[in-house]
Write a protein that binds this DNA or RNA. Structure first.
Lengths: 336, 336
DNA sequence: TTGAAAGCGCTAACAG
DNA sequence: CTGTTAGCGCTTTCAA
């Protein structure tokens, strides 16, 4: 079943069928009807490889998913799924690459023309893959922001503004001493962009507002969380506000705080940076800056498509944070 | 940069270069050396589309990942990653399909020759995609086992045997009344194979051994888990053994049991069916039947490659469960 | 508005 | 052991 079969059946030339399919030139309504009818009747499906060979476009994009220690898999999957969904909306498929393949993988899929472009998640401040990406003739989009963005296209939540927004919210509620419970240490060690930027925003805003602040990384797992919180509250008796930038520990953290005899938000206010579903799933529902994974994934695809259409987008797109007040942050308790 | 450039550089014909690359006919060591040298010097990478067109093989397989309510994303990702890794080991790439695309997606990627074969995860007992899969001329492998496996290739852990092994282990420790804390209700409602099979094995073994048994589905989330456990222990005061087939509730469940004043394993023995990392991550480390996601993913790829090589594998491959005793299951307390 | 025909870059049958 | 060559099925220029 080839394009020439369809052409014969519709009584037109193969090129006409091709043009009906691609819309790259105008076709009379009558002809188009006839061709589409034949396609439907015959169940014609064009051969992807032949298409790729002739048009120099595979209609596939590569997505590099993170598999590192410390990443929260469900959140990573939200990004991945929104990339796949958005790509499909634009007639593209998604080839899955793991980080294990490294830069070689990028060169391979681009070099063999398997894909038209690449989306990379979980970008580090000084990411080893960036030189390879820059050297590629294929367009790419980073989810995350490295130190040097020149010549790149990056999209992410504005984590610095998010960190600031959390402190600002707590400060407005009267809190004078706050802490950031951050990502696992390994995430900072490899200098993941979003984690650093949150810390930077958190600290800057606290400094500017004259609020006492501390930053503590935190591993997942109940023992680690309990230890971190216990230590934090012991060392900082006047602490009344916590910002949490660590999805998996959210439930455990609330548990641990309660275990120490503190009520949220009566004794301790908590603000999270997390996807909405995670923030609302716990009790009490958390005041949070939402992590719009779906929008970021969708925008990443849009940016890549723009580049494929030779539109060149800004180097860095940062989505403004939206802080949604819920039940976990309140005015500073009078006792303090 | 094409194959003819390499051929010219090496002083051979294009077909010789092709054969060096594919190994499909013997080449003198000298020629091979020369060709490989030229490939390296020129940095030649064959065009995937051209290859697919000429050889009728894309060297890509499709993987359909589950995105349904109740699935535990990290475990699903373990499968996905092992599929990608194994596929890469065999010179194949992986195209990611979401369940949202449904059967149409399967027909599309197969019909356009984008992929050579398909792996489907999270198979239901009476899965809507199976007719489409059967109708396809492309080979496929299911991770999971539907009701009618004729003409299909399925791979999974033997969940029925796993359910049996858990009961057998508890019975051997003297327990006389046990319960299965299962997957969320939605998973049973859509009749997911692995969940049903575990229940069947659990109940059959209990019946055969004259052990009292109960099965309770359980949603994730602390409230649901606590409610489930509280109710279970209240209604069954003589219950001394629990089998848990629900990854995300593991930590919360142990917490809840403790909250009710019961010690694990002194008062209550717990056996899990879960990946090893999840079973060992909690306290106490859980006696468990391991869910070998990596092996299942790898085997799925092997089976698919066999089919691509016209070797036809058995319809159903069930990996035997391995129960590893750890600290969470002990002899039935004397009081009961 | 449509058709004819020349490739796209590779593989594999055929020939030697 | 190696070369020649005819496609694979589509897109897109060129021509009408």
């Amino acid at each position: 079943m080839r394009i020439s079969d369809v052409a014969r059946h519709a009584g037109v030339s193969p090129s006409t069928v091709s043009y009906v399919l691609s819309g790259k030139r105008s076709i009379s309504a009558a002809t188009r009807e006839r061709v589409l009818e034949s396609i439907a009747v015959l169940g014609y499906q064009p051969h992807a490889g032949a298409r790729a060979l002739a048009s120099n476009r595979s209609n596939v994009i590569a997505l590099v998913i993170p598999l590192r220690p410390g990443i929260h898999v469900p959140v990573a999957m939200q990004f991945a799924v929104s990339v796949v969904t958005s790509a499909r909306d634009r007639e593209h498929d998604v080839l899955l690459l793991t980080q294990a393949e490294g830069e070689g993988g990028l060169r391979r899929v681009a070099g063999t023309s398997m894909v038209d472009g690449i989306i990379v998640m979980d970008v580090e401040v000084d990411d080893a893959r960036i030189p390879a990406l820059r050297a590629l003739s294929h367009p790419s989009v980073l989810i995350g922001v490295p130190a040097d963005t020149s010549g790149l296209t990056c999209i992410d939540l504005d984590f610095e503004a998010a960190g600031r927004a959390c402190v600002a919210h707590l400060a407005a509620l009267g809190h004078r001493e706050v802490a950031l419970i951050g990502q696992p240490p390994s995430v900072y060690e490899r200098r993941t962009g979003f984690a650093e930027r949150t810390v930077a925003g958190f600290e800057a805003e606290a400094r500017e507002r004259g609020v006492e602040s501390a930053v503590v990384p935190c591993d997942a797992g109940q023992a680690a969380v309990t230890a971190t919180v216990t230590e934090l509250l012991r060392e900082r008796p006047r602490l009344t506000g916590i910002v949490v930038h660590n999805e998996p520990v959210l439930p455990t953290l609330l548990e641990a705080v309660r275990g120490l005899g503190r009520e949220v938000p009566a004794d301790l206010s908590v603000v999270a940076i997390a996807p909405d579903d995670l923030a609302t799933e716990v009790s009490p529902p958390l005041t949070s800056v939402s992590l719009p994974a779906e929008e970021v994934g969708g925008r990443a695809v849009s940016l890549l498509m723009d580049k494929l259409d030779a539109i060149d987008p800004p180097e860095v797109t940062l989505l403004p944070p939206r802080l949604v007040p819920r039940a976990s942050a309140a005015a500073r308790p009078a006792l303090f």
